[in-house]
Structure formats: structure tokens, C-alpha cells
Design a protein around this nucleic acid. Structure first.
Lengths: 209, 209
DNA sequence: CGAGTTAGTCAACACGGTGTCGAGAGAACT
DNA sequence: AGTTCTCTCGACACCGTGTTGACTAACTCG
């Protein structure tokens, strides 16, 4: 209701920058990142193409800014995760994996665009890698703690196991998000992932007869 | 020594087509698929850019042809895999996974290019998916057989488990092939993957204290 | 208040890659 | 010798990117 006339005429630079981000994320809901042209992003934000370059150096830079927000959330979540696994390890892992699943699906459009672009764009690649690394670090620490307290059997290098499991999650969720085949049955992703994690961290092979 | 003069002047169409394929795979050893221009592929094959279009409709079509050859090998390997798991399941799985690892690393350049391109190219995507499906089918069949004979515990839907494990392999090997971080320690990929597979297929969680 | 600075804007341009068209060269068949 | 078929490429139209330089509107400080 308030703030009408005054700042009138031109929206501020921040508004414009934000408009570009919003337009991009909106277009990404239904379109391939590659198929977006800078002209579309500019038009969507109510500016001309050259003006777009005043705000961002490229399409990829916009995606990077979008991804950066998502990554922040990821880092907050990792920091907030409990390291308390003693009472009920399976449930604790489920909560951790659920955090990852949630971040991925809350920002499905940004996540899938980032996955598609990372192979050609170093910044996007690095930003996502950093995020994955924070998950892997957390996972490796917990696995080691579980082994130390005797809850999990000693096995392969904990960090390698942590990396494999996290890469599996990434790939399985990407396949689910983009509706690929093969993929895990829709809706069952979390159950399946938790099962593989728990079995490969705690599971032992019974001695055959 | 033989076949000198006669067929001289112009190389045949098949030679040219093959030259394009060879040039592309060679360039792919050291360069990003996206950074390759059609002009380079044409020049490398000793023809002009318009002539390139006589042989292939696009860069992607070349990659598709390259990938198709790899896929054939994959299918042959899947068909040749033994379904004999009773004597030594862990070794049998290791052989199966090794087949996948080998195909992936023998054709590292083509595989990584295909992974990078699949998100924007339906044909490449479908071809790779079909290949993954054949691995998943094989895996799911074996898991079910192992459960039926009582060697593996009944657990989550075998096909979902098979899909997750195969997607993990794909992602772990891609990370290894492109030197990403996080990745599994170089050289340890096969050991780590086999461990996760065997534990998640056969592993049981000991009842805690 | 008015001169200077800063932020923002865009028409016009240069460039590089893609894909097409149409003319033609050479082998091959008749 | 003529016709056809395969193959070849110069030249062109097109599209998306990124840059330049001139312009305008608002802020600010003497």
C-alpha cells in the first residue's frame, strides 16, 4: 500500500538483478537451461539484452548466483545435522539423507540445470563440488565415529565409501528429478537410498553354511 | 604395397565418414565436446564444413555414432556374463562390475562426452539409457535369483536396488574419469564399488547388543 | 540551484558458429 | 557421348553472444 510515487520511474538495480534471477528460475521450471537465450532472460526482467550484461556476465553467471543460494541452504543443513547416531542409527541416517533429498527437490530446477551445465562451466562445477564435499566430509566423519564406537564393522576407507554413497544419492535423485530410465520407483527414493547406506555401512556378510 | 594408383583421386565416402569419427574421438581425448566446432571435425577429416553435413547431420550425430559402437560392446559383454553366482558371489559380482568399469575406461573420452551431452540431446540420452537398462535388468535378475536361492536376504524391491547401484557406478566412474572432487581414491574404484554392492545385496544388520 | 558524478540503459556493431542451397566435378553405368 | 549418382564446396542467411559508445535520469556537494 505504501511506497508508491517517490522511487518511481526506474526500478533500482537490485530489483532488476532480482528480476533476472526470478525470471531465470521461473523459465527453468519448464525449460532446458541451454534453450534459454539471454534475450529471453532480459525481456523477462523488463530490460534489453545489453542491459543484462550490466548485471551478469553470462547466463551461467545467473545460474551460479541461483545455485549459490541453494548451496548456502545445503551448508546450513549440514551444520545443523545431529551427530547423535547411537540411539537409532538407521533413523539418524534417514534424517541426514532426507535433508539432501529435500534440498535437491525443493530446488529441482536449479539443481538439474546445474548438473547439466557443470561439465562445461568451471564455476558451477566447483560450487557444486564444494557442496558435495561438505556432505562427504560429514558422512565420512560419522562413519568413522560409528566404527570407533564399534557399531559399524571396519571396512573400506570411510571416505571412499562416503564419496560413493553421496555420488549415488546425487545420481539417483537427478534421475528421479528428470524422469529418466532407469530410475528408482517414484516416491521410493529415500527408502531405497537409506537401505543401501545402512547395509553398506553396518551390514556384514553372514558366513555361508 | 598393393592398391596404389587406381582408386586414387578421391577417398571413398566410407573413408571420409570413418575419418570424421576418428578425428572426433581423437580430439575428444584432450578437448571438451562443446568446444569442438564442426569446422575442426571437417578439417581433421580433410573436408570442408558443408561436406561434413553430407555425412552427419550435426556434431551430436557423430557422438551418437561413436557411442553406438561402445554400446554394442556393452551389450555383448552383458550377454557374455556368467549367471553362475553360487560358488563365489563376491567374485562373480566383481567380474560383472569390472566389465562395466572396463567399458567405461576403455572409452573414457566417448563416455564422458556422452554424459555431458545427454541432458540436451535426446538420442544420446536414449542410447545411454538403453545401455544402462540392460545392466539394470541383468543386475535385478541376479539379485532375485540370489534371493530365491536363499543366498541374499529379502529386502527392498530388487529393481530399485539394481538401479541405484548401477547409477552409483556410473556416477563414481564419471567422477573418476574426469578427476572431480569428491571422487573415490584413484585405482580403488572397483574395490569400493564391489564392497558396496556386496554389502547392500547380501549384508545383514547384526542385532545390536 | 547547477555542475559533476554515478548508475543504469540501449541501438548498433562485430564476430563466430550453424545449417542450407545450388552449381559443378569426377567416377560409373549404358 | 550422354546420363546419372556420389561427392564437394563457395557463398549465403541466420542466430546468439558480447562490446562500444552515446545517452539519460537521479543523487550529491559546494
Amino acid at each position: 500500500m505504501a511506497e508508491r510515487s517517490r522511487r518511481a520511474s526506474r526500478p533500482s538495480g537490485d530489483d532488476r538483478q532480482e528480476a533476472i534471477l526470478i525470471t531465470t528460475e521461473a523459465l527453468l521450471q519448464s525449460r532446458d537451461f541451454d534453450s534459454l537465450s539471454i534475450d529471453e532472460l532480459a525481456k523477462g526482467a523488463g530490460i534489453s539484452r545489453p542491459t543484462f550484461y550490466f548485471y551478469f556476465a553470462s547466463k551461467e553467471a545467473v545460474l551460479l548466483a541461483l545455485l549459490d543460494r541453494v548451496i548456502r541452504q545445503v551448508e546450513d543443513r549440514v551444520a545443523a545435522l545431529s551427530r547423535e547416531f547411537e540411539a537409532d542409527p538407521a533413523s539418524a541416517w534417514r534424517r541426514s539423507i532426507a535433508a539432501f533429498v529435500e534440498v535437491f527437490s525443493e530446488h529441482r530446477a536449479v539443481a538439474t540445470a546445474a548438473m547439466a551445465v557443470r561439465s562445461r562451466n568451471a564455476e558451477v562445477h566447483d560450487l557444486w563440488s564444494r557442496s558435495m564435499l561438505s556432505w562427504v566430509d560429514y558422512t565420512a566423519e560419522v562413519i568413522e565415529a560409528e566404527r570407533t564406537r564399534g557399531a559399524a564393522p571396519i571396512g573400506i576407507h570411510a571416505r571412499d565409501l562416503a564419496a560413493s554413497l553421496n555420488l549415488m544419492n546425487e545420481r539417483v535423485l537427478l534421475a528421479a528429478a528428470t524422469g529418466e530410465h532407469p530410475a528408482v520407483t517414484a516416491g521410493a527414493e529415500l527408502d531405497v537410498l537409506v537401505d543401501v547406506w545402512v547395509r553398506s555401512i553396518y551390514g556384514v556378510i553372514p558366513v555361508s553354511n
